[in-house]
Structures are given as structure tokens and as C-alpha cells.
Design a protein around this nucleic acid. Structure first.
Lengths: 241, 241
DNA sequence: ATATAGATCTCGTCA
DNA sequence: TGACGAGGTCTATAT
């Protein structure tokens, strides 16, 4: 397809809220929070109806270049200019040959329903405190407070305060850093010393475990729960690997 | 397009290393590290030549669902099954109507050249140590060693060891956590107490600054350098916003 | 394969 | 709007 024809097509499509995808040979350059150049090659360019632009190479999960929603899209000769004032960024696609184009106005009012995130995990632990310890009494599941963004907060049978940090994947050194910071904040704000730190996760790396122990904190092995029960059957068959 | 025709087209395209994109009305379900369902709506489905699968809604930067490279792609009636044994994950796309399809074998041997990342920043500080302090002497830019992944390590005129952590964006509490952990490791391993921690970043959040000070560490305002000098002119015009 | 940390991270949420 | 932390994070690198 002729590049000028493509430019007109994109202009019309954007007015009609269509999403456009094109296969083309191109050079790409970007400047914004960082800078990049990408030499001549074949890519898939996506222009969404919210003026998101994606540049995909033939392999890999992620776009090699992108511009966020709300960008301005213009054409100048064979250059596709994408500009985002808020991000102070621009992307230029030098179009050498447009192979094929497809477009469609997509009607989609649905939102993804996802289960198994960290919130599901701390909800589960609040309702099943024995997973932490036999005498753990949860008090609050909180997000932002003056003591930080603690996942789960409570106390034990001896009156010690307990701070629980949840991770849905193997806990790393950074998770221990985070727990340590929360425990120190609680000690500071509550003016007490007997605060127990608990890291709840399906696993922990060796160095993180060592650091956890050195701070007197406790690891609690907990799997992230899966709320969408209808998938349990399928999960079981997957577990047979 | 008929769904069965689409299935055959995809099968043939994958054999030819083509990338396929389709606009369709569909339901999507996923199970793997988490689980999700997405009700009926119009989406763009991308099947790359490395068997990456992306599901894009008409708005937003990121795919609403995806499967990593190396997945198995099969069809059963009007269901597109994507399965990844390594990830123990599957994705089902119930195809209700295929509106349009485009495909192309993309030839691309190029790699992105990107400037302004954290490595560029620590390289710059090694070559311009006065940006840290007048008497800073860099010794090593190291990645993994026995003292951790320290960005830049050196000493000052008084013989104090200096640990520099670089951040290309505003430094947060987590950056201070990281620096603190590195400084403590250096103290431990070198058996000395006089270790200075420096956080080099274009900015720092108020809480992070307070925590940094409380640990006796120093903030050094440094912008991430832009190595691709050909863009400096454009950067200047962008800076005029 | 695991561990570690960066990323043009993106995204949601809350003060 | 900034701050903070999660993410099906993903990706690169080193062990």
C-alpha cells in the first residue's frame, strides 16, 4: 500500500474510533524519558482508538517501542509522528514500505476479572489467621495509613504486635527490606519494641531467608488463593504435569 | 470470516513463521499464576511467529491477556487454545465472530539501541565523579559481587568507603531500603564502620529524603545522561514546554 | 534453573 | 497530582 494512502486511512480511522494495525518496513526513533533508535526492519504497528501506539517486532512479549494513550498522531511525508505532550515524548516511524493494513471499530465494555492477587491473599489470611500462627489475631487489612501500607496487622497471644507482609510469588531481599521498614515504623509510632514481622509467601530465596532470620522475622509458607472456583477442575488437571 | 477458515489460516501461517493479527468478538479465560475471565467483546488478537499470543482491548497500553513465547496453539471448534507447559498456564479464546485478519512474515534482525538507563547513569558518574562530591574516587562499577549489586563503589579523601545507588527516576523509600542494605553489607564484609551511602537520582520523595537523612546518607541530584547525542537538538526543543 | 534488580516499567489507589 | 507498592509484571544478567 502506498504510504500516503495509509496516512489518509489512519486519519479517517481515528475519526471513527477504529483500531488500525499495519505491517511495514520501517525505522523507529524515540525520545522521552529515555532515547532509542531501531534500524530498518519489518514490524507490526498498532494504533488504538485512544491514540495508543505500539511497535512490535516479530518476536517477544513486549512492544519494542510504544506511546501512551492520548498521543497526537500526524503524518509528514513518509514519517508517522507520534507526540505526547504530557509525557514530553515523541516517536517517529519512518515508513519505508507498508505491506498490509487492517482496521476495525472495536466495541468492548468488559473489564478483566482476575483472581489470585495479593489482596486475595491478605483477605484469605485475615479469614484464616491460623495459617500465620495458632494465636494470631488479625485486626486490620489496611492500605495507606500513618504506619505504611501494611498488608495485615494484628497481635498474638502474648500481646506482641504482628505485622504481616504478603507476597504472591517467591519472596526476595526486597520483600524483607519492606517488612523491616514496616516493623520499624510500627515500633516507632506505637512506641513499643515487641513487634513481630511475618513474611507470608509461597516461597523465599535463600539470601532473603537468612536476612529475615537475622532480623528475627518469621517466614510463613502460604499459597495465593484462587477465587474463581470454576477453574479448580482445570487447575487440578494442570497440576498433573 | 468463518472461524474454521481462520483456524486453518493460523495453522498455515505459523508453519510459515508469519505473524497473524485478527479483530474478533470473543470471550477470554486464563489460568496460570493467576486466573481471569473476560466477557464478550471485540478485541485484537496477535499471534507472533514465536507463538506469543496477545489479546488487546481497544484502549490501553497493555494487553488484557497474553501468553509468552513458545506456547502451543491449537483449535477446537470455535475455541483458540493456547497452552504453555513451562509456565503451567493456558488461555482460551472463544471466538464468536472473526471480523478481519491480516498476516505477514516479518523479517527483522535489528535490536533496539536505548540510552538513558541506569547503567548509562553509573557509567557517567564513574567518568564524572565530581557530580557526587569533590573528593569522590570511583573504584568499581560492579554488578553481582559478594557485597551485592552495587552500582558504583569507591572512597573519599578521608578514606571512607562510598556506596552509590543510582536511580533514573525519582528515588522512593524502596531505593533507600536498597542503599541501606548495600551499605550494611559493605560494613559487614569489609569490617569497617565508616561507609558513606549516596543516592544519585534526578529527585527524591519527601519520605525517602527523611529516611535517607535518618540513616546518615546523602542525596545527589543527577539526571540520567542521554548518550544518543543526535537527539540533543530535539531534546532542547522539548525542554521548552 | 534460580536469584537479583531495572524498566520509557504500567497500573490502581489514596492522601 | 504525587506517592507508594503490586504486577499473571517482563527482561536481562550472573551464578
Amino acid at each position: 500500500m502506498d504510504v500516503k494512502v495509509f496516512a489518509k486511512l489512519v486519519g479517517k480511522s481515528l475519526l471513527k474510533n477504529e483500531t488500525v494495525v499495519a505491517f511495514m518496513k520501517c525505522n523507529v526513533s524515540y525520545s522521552g524519558r529515555a532515547e532509542s533508535v531501531l534500524g530498518e526492519g519489518d514490524r507490526m504497528i498498532v494504533i488504538k482508538s485512544d491514540n495508543t501506539v505500539l511497535v512490535h517486532q516479530p518476536e517477544g512479549n513486549n512492544p519494542v517501542n510504544y506511546m501512551k494513550p492520548g498521543s497526537e498522531i500526524t503524518f509528514e511525508d513518509n514519517i508517522l509522528h507520534v507526540f505526547n505532550a504530557k509525557e514530553k515524548a515523541w516517536l517517529d516511524v519512518e515508513m519505508l514500505e507498508v505491506y498490509d493494513v487492517a482496521k476495525k471499530k472495536l466495541e468492548d465494555g468488559q473489564k478483566l476479572d482476575l483472581a489470585g492477587n495479593e489482596k486475595d491473599m491478605s483477605d484469605f489470611l485475615r479469614d484464616n489467621p491460623h495459617k500465620i500462627s495458632s494465636d494470631f489475631k488479625p485486626e486490620k487489612r489496611e492500605h495507606q495509613t500513618d504506619v505504611g501500607f501494611i498488608d495485615l496487622f494484628g497481635h498474638d497471644g502474648q500481646g506482641n504486635l504482628v505485622v504481616v507482609e504478603c507476597k504472591r510469588v517467591t519472596a526476595s531481599l526486597m520483600a524483607v527490606d519492606q517488612l523491616r521498614r514496616y516493623v520499624e515504623r510500627v515500633k516507632q509510632i506505637k512506641g513499643v519494641e515487641n513487634v513481630t514481622g511475618v513474611l507470608a509467601a509461597p516461597g523465599i530465596t535463600p539470601n532473603a531467608k537468612e536476612m529475615l532470620s537475622s532480623w528475627g522475622f518469621i517466614f510463613s509458607k502460604v499459597e495465593p488463593p484462587k477465587r474463581l472456583e470454576r477453574w479448580q477442575k482445570d487447575q487440578k488437571s494442570l497440576a498433573e504435569f
